[in-house]
Computed example of a mutant assay.
Amino acid sequence: MTNLQLKSQNHKSFLCPNDNIKRRGLMFVISAPSGAGKTTLSKILLETDKHIHMSVSYTTRPMRSEEIDGLDYHFISIDKFKQMIDNDEFIEYAKVFDNLYGTPKKEVERNILFGEDVLFDIDWQGHRNLISRARQDVVSVFILPPSKEDLIHRITKRGKDSIDVIRNRIESANWEICHWHEYDYIIINRDIEESLTKIQSILRAERLRKERRIGLPDFVGNLIQQDIDLL
């Protein structure tokens, strides 16, 4: 049993969206090869659902010009990252293209214990590490492109990358797709609105699982004990 699982027994009062039953939050993972539409879907989901929050990862890779430290990632040194590993501050971490990425434990635990969900934008390695530590709290979705032609079009449409960079991204996408079977749900992203509706349906159903609605035993107990005057 993990620390996250143990702490679920010491919850405070929180509500399920559109419900009066206390619930435990979940870790919602969306993974996809580059160009499959993951970023767009994640952004819309965060904008339209106030009960799910983005997990901001730590990374050792250099910050890009358009990125903001603390919003896109927490950018730290390799030594600091290793120190955080030693202090068991990550739920999961992985090495991707010679850079380290890790998910901070404390913030995720706090959201889950208060019935809020956390969105993870991680690859198959991060997903595998996450379910090894907290399987009961994880719900994962893998986004597939409708065709290889469509994927290549999305990868190359910016027109700024060299042929070698494009080739590497396609090869990386192939490798990512090979891990599709490790996820709970698979969505073929032919249309953004349709795919978003499917993701929202998955999230809604998973929030209603009896295992997460930890206020149900009290509700049912009170329901059974209610006396009704039939006269």
Rank of each mutant, 00 (worst) to 15 (best):
R133P: 10
A134G: 13
A134K: 07
R135A: 15
R135G: 13
R135P: 14
R135F: 12
Q136D: 15
D137F: 07
D137Y: 06
V138C: 01
V138G: 03
V138L: 01
V139S: 00
V139W: 01
V139Y: 01
V141S: 02
V141H: 02
F142K: 03
I143P: 02
I143A: 02
I143L: 06
L144H: 07
P145G: 01
P145I: 00
P146T: 05
P146G: 07
S147Y: 04
K148D: 11
K148W: 11
K148P: 10
D150G: 13
L151C: 01
L151Q: 02
L151T: 01
L151W: 00
I152R: 00
I152M: 00
I152G: 00
I152V: 02
H153V: 09
R154T: 03
T156I: 01
K157C: 12
K157D: 09
K157R: 15
R158S: 03
R158Y: 06
G159D: 03
G159H: 05
K160I: 09
D161K: 07
D161C: 04
S162M: 05
S162H: 05
S162Q: 05
I163M: 13
D164A: 06
V165M: 08
V165E: 08
I166Y: 04
I166T: 05
R167M: 09
N168G: 06
R169Q: 06
I170K: 02
I170H: 02
E171V: 08
E171D: 13
S172C: 13
S172H: 13
S172K: 15
S172F: 13
A173W: 03
N174I: 04
N174V: 03
W175F: 14
C178L: 14
C178R: 14
C178H: 14
H179N: 06
H179K: 09
W180C: 12
W180N: 12
W180T: 13
H181W: 13
H181Y: 15
H181G: 15
E182D: 05
E182H: 10
E182F: 06
Y183N: 03
Y183V: 00
D184E: 04
D184V: 04
Y185R: 11
I186K: 14
I186N: 11
N189F: 00
N189E: 03
R190F: 08
E193F: 10
E193L: 13
S195N: 07
S195V: 04
L196N: 07
T197Y: 12
T197L: 11
T197V: 11
K198M: 11
K198D: 10
K198Y: 10
I199W: 02
I199R: 05
Q200D: 06
S201L: 12
I202T: 07
I202W: 04
L203G: 04
L203K: 10
R204Y: 14
R204G: 12
R204I: 12
A205S: 12
E206M: 06
E206I: 03
R207E: 08
L208I: 10
L208Q: 15
L208D: 13
K210I: 12
E211V: 14
E211Q: 15
E211W: 15
R212L: 08
R213D: 07
R213N: 10
G215N: 03
G215F: 01
L216H: 09
P217L: 00
D218F: 08
D218H: 10
D218L: 09
D218R: 14
D218T: 08
F219P: 15
V220C: 09
V220N: 09
N222P: 11
L223F: 07
